[in-house]
Write a protein that binds this DNA or RNA. Structure first.
Length: 803
DNA sequence: GAGTTTGAAACT
DNA sequence: CAGTTTCAAACTC
């Protein structure tokens, strides 16, 4: 299978040799890494390295090299572009499926082909004829592995660092070349070791390194108008982003899943057909190392890059509309797919970790594929949309909507697939994020707004995903949550695809959910005289400014995490364990805060002192201080009243309580207790999984996404979960991450002229902080990433309080 | 799908 | 800041 040559090709480990992780691995691995080999070919291959590979965190790699291979396949999607370009192959995606991987390699460069050692398997490859090799490699079985390897190798070229990173990982794999088994063993070892030892410092270093490469990728991609690079990068970024968002809490498993998913997704995007096999791979692979490691900051960068890229792509006219569309779609899709992928993974894991998973994944994969297939068109649309849209997440939303529609309808129709569905939703959010960069054109405020929204949305999606994940696991495991899932799905859908029905506000007031969310109205909207469209961007922006001038937090997330609250509310937070609170508080009089009329309830948060509600019975937390646990009981009762559909609310409630708290860790206990544990998880590196846990935790979020599909309660989970995920990040890691985030945040902040906007998302993130003052710092930093401004948070909070 | 209820947003 | 109006979502039938 894995010819040593291939691995050898990946030599560029040198950088990482110094890295503690690398050393650690070496120490572990009986075989020392064969750095030498790096022939010209190898470098060439490296140059081609797909961005995705870059994202792959070396950490992850050690854990699962096998994933790598497949993951690389996933990465392929980006590569396909190259292949197409180079080859001018208009080959239908379907045709490429098996070949793609090879093609990807090929396209990059003949050199790559040489590197492709897959030839090892086939003498052809030796010839070094890239194309021939590629095709040769196309032989499904052999090809896959080699391809992956090749891909990984190729990746590096695009981004020097990334490549190096990849190499590093690859290098590790090289060491392991001699025997995958060894590698696998090493993985386990590495994971353990990392978790235990490396987790602290090493991880930080590694992570930082990874992030850097990522950044470079983005920058590079930008610098290189080259479509290929952009394309390649995008998928990775998206996947990465998605993974980041997803990653929340869980352990490596989740990460792996998410990763594999992400990769898979991207790959699928490129080639839906392949998705099936990939899905299998995904189940097995779990490779996507990239995303997990990447810090939020990197994500932001990537997002920006992706956006720019998208724009560039559009400008370029897209040598091949298909290719460009694919790329764009891929980006967007990636999120969706990742989501689905995560589900698959989870499922697989649940059922069987290993081969069994593959089988399952296959079946699901097929279904997923179907779902995915539809997305492409949607993506295309989105791609088209992107260029025009500046500000809002709308582009994302639109795309998301498209995707959602497709996904939703299909998956929804078949409840089974809701997972994919739910994920699609999150993807939307991610998309939105990605698109947000486009917003650059917009005023910084707007950007901030978008970011904020993005954060909030992301959180929501994450939350939803978490819930969904949770729900999913339950479904598969327990099977009870189906109801909840439905609800969650609905909720997620609602959230993911916001639709308004405005008649008099022209969608230029906060009455309009789309507008309030910083999104443009889209097709699904049934609004009248709508001005909330890209065409009226100026008007929208002006209106936003006006609204912001009145209320800087108008577009900020309504729900703030407890951490934020703590300072603000102080006692309240104490009373209500709920991690989050509504920014303003509600003013309910008749709904008893038990219906969506209540923003607190709708946001899945308990009422707080700031609330002026009467007869509050908010299941998430009463104004008087009743806690979630109580609420849960109440909720269950109340929600029970509702039917399955209604049960969604219950489910939501449960999820909320559970999710918010248990998101990362054990979804099991809904009680407030859960929430805290979640926080712990990151540090614990859960499940004996490596320090990656932080990343993993992020990855876990992916699960969340999956859950979202099922679950509905997007609203509930949204904020809290996301925050949780962030929180989950180990403190040790966090510093680095934070730095990255901070940088990002700083960048974002800088972009946003107005400190006014405190992106509420921060609060969300910070919610856990309250629990653990020590982590507050981390949380802050983290939140900044999504929201834009950790700093703003403080400012935001104050303004929020003002309300 | 139409109508009602509800509470946030907007206005005064 | 309080009160009123407007608005659209949430909900009910």
């Amino acid at each position: 299978m894995d010819t040593p040559e291939k691995y050898q090709i990946a030599t560029p480990i040198s950088k990482y040799e110094d890295s503690p992780v690398f050393n650690y691995i070496n120490s572990l691995s009986p075989i020392k890494p064969v750095k030498s080999i790096p022939t010209d070919q190898t470098f060439s291959s490296l140059s081609f390295a797909s961005p995705s590979s870059v994202f792959t965190s070396p950490h992850i790699n050690p854990q699962r090299e096998s994933r790598f291979l497949r993951r690389h396949q996933f990465t392929d999607p980006s590569k396909p572009e190259f292949s197409r370009r180079d080859n001018d192959e208009n080959t239908s995606e379907g045709v490429l499926d098996a070949v793609h991987q090879l093609d990807y390699l090929d396209p990059g460069r003949s050199d790559v082909g040489i590197t492709i050692d897959p030839s090892n398997k086939d003498p052809k490859s030796d010839s070094g004829l890239p194309q021939s090799l590629k095709y040769d490699c196309t032989s499904p079985e052999d090809n896959r592995i080699p391809n992956d390897e090749i891909e990984t190798e190729t990746v590096p070229e695009v981004a020097g660092r990334p490549a190096s990173h990849v190499h590093f990982v690859q290098g590790v794999s090289k060491e392991r070349r001699q025997s995958f088994e060894i590698e696998t063993e090493l993985r386990g070892i590495c994971q353990i070791g990392e978790s235990e030892e490396a987790a602290g410092c090493d991880w930080g270093k590694l992570i930082s390194d990874d992030t850097d490469p990522l950044i470079f990728d983005s920058s590079i991609s930008k610098a290189h108008s080259e479509v290929q690079n952009h394309k390649t990068v995008d998928p990775g970024t998206y996947s990465f982003i998605a993974t980041v968002l997803q990653l929340p809490h869980d352990e490596i498993d989740d990460l792996q899943k998410s990763q594999s998913i992400g990769s898979v997704d991207s790959y699928e995007q490129c080639e839906t057909e392949e998705t099936v096999t990939k899905s299998r791979d995904v189940g097995e692979i779990k490779e996507t190392d990239q995303t997990p490691a990447v810090p939020s900051s990197t994500l932001l960068d990537k997002l920006v890059v992706s956006d720019s890229r998208a724009e560039v792509d559009d400008k370029k006219g897209k040598k091949c509309m298909q290719s460009s569309c694919k790329q764009l779609s891929i980006r967007r899709r990636c999120l969706l797919y990742e989501m689905t992928g995560a589900h698959k993974k989870k499922l697989v894991y649940n059922s069987d970790s290993g081969s069994s998973a593959s089988s399952q994944s296959d079946g699901k994969g097929s279904s997923d594929e179907k779902q995915f297939m539809p997305f492409k068109p949607g993506n295309i649309h989105s791609s088209s949309m992107l260029p025009g849209i500046g500000l809002h997440l709308n582009a994302l939303a639109t795309t998301a909507e498209d995707g959602n529609k497709v996904v939703k309808h299909e998956p929804l129709a078949s409840e089974r697939k809701p997972m994919s569905m739910s994920r699609s939703i999150p993807s939307l959010n991610s998309m939105a994020l990605a698109q947000t960069p486009l917003n650059k054109s917009l005023t910084p405020n707007l950007l901030e707004m978008d970011l904020v929204r993005f954060d909030s949305e992301v959180q929501a999606t994450e939350d939803a995903s978490q819930t969904s994940d949770f729900g999913v696991s339950e479904e598969f495991n327990h099977g009870s949550p189906k109801r909840k899932r439905r609800r969650s799905e609905q909720a997620a859908e609602n959230e993911a695809c916001k639709r308004c029905n405005c008649k008099k506000s022209k969608c230029l007031k906060l009455y309009c959910e789309c507008f309030a969310a910083g999104l443009y109205c889209v097709e699904p909207c049934s609004c009248q005289d709508c001005f909330n469209k890209p065409v009226h961007e100026d008007t929208v922006l002006q209106t936003r400014k006006q609204i912001e001038s009145r209320n800087p937090l108008a577009f900020a997330p309504k729900v703030i995490r407890s951490s934020d609250y703590v300072p603000e509310f102080g006692d309240e937070s104490n009373k209500t364990p709920a991690s989050a609170r509504h920014k303003r508080g509600c003013n309910c009089k008749k709904s008893s805060c038990l219906k969506k009329y209540c923003e607190c309830f709708q946001g899945g948060v308990g009422c707080s002192i700031s609330c002026r509600c009467e007869g509050c019975k908010n299941t998430f937390g009463r104004k008087d201080g009743t806690e979630e646990a109580e609420l849960d009981e109440e909720e269950t009762e109340e929600t029970c009243d509702k039917n399955s559909l209604d049960t969604s609310s219950e489910y939501d409630v449960v999820l909320r309580g559970e999710e918010e708290h248990s998101d990362l860790v054990a979804p099991v206990t809904p009680s407030s207790e859960i929430s805290r544990p979640l926080v712990q998880l990151p540090f614990t590196f859960g499940g004996g999984k490596p320090p990656q846990s932080s990343l993993l935790s992020v990855g876990s979020s992916s699960q969340m996404y999956t859950s979202q599909k099922f679950g509905p309660s997007g609203f509930i989970c949204r904020l809290p979960k996301f925050e949780k995920h962030l929180e989950m990040i180990p403190e040790d890691e966090t510093p680095e991450i934070l730095q990255g985030d901070c940088t990002l945040a700083g960048g974002v902040k800088s972009t946003s002229p107005n400190s006014k906007r405190v992106s509420p998302p921060h609060h969300k993130i910070g919610s856990t902080r309250a629990w653990r003052s020590g982590r507050k710092l981390i949380l802050r930093s983290i939140p900044s990433f999504p929201s834009l401004n950790p700093c703003q948070e403080s400012s935001d909070r104050s303004p929020g309080k003002t309300q």
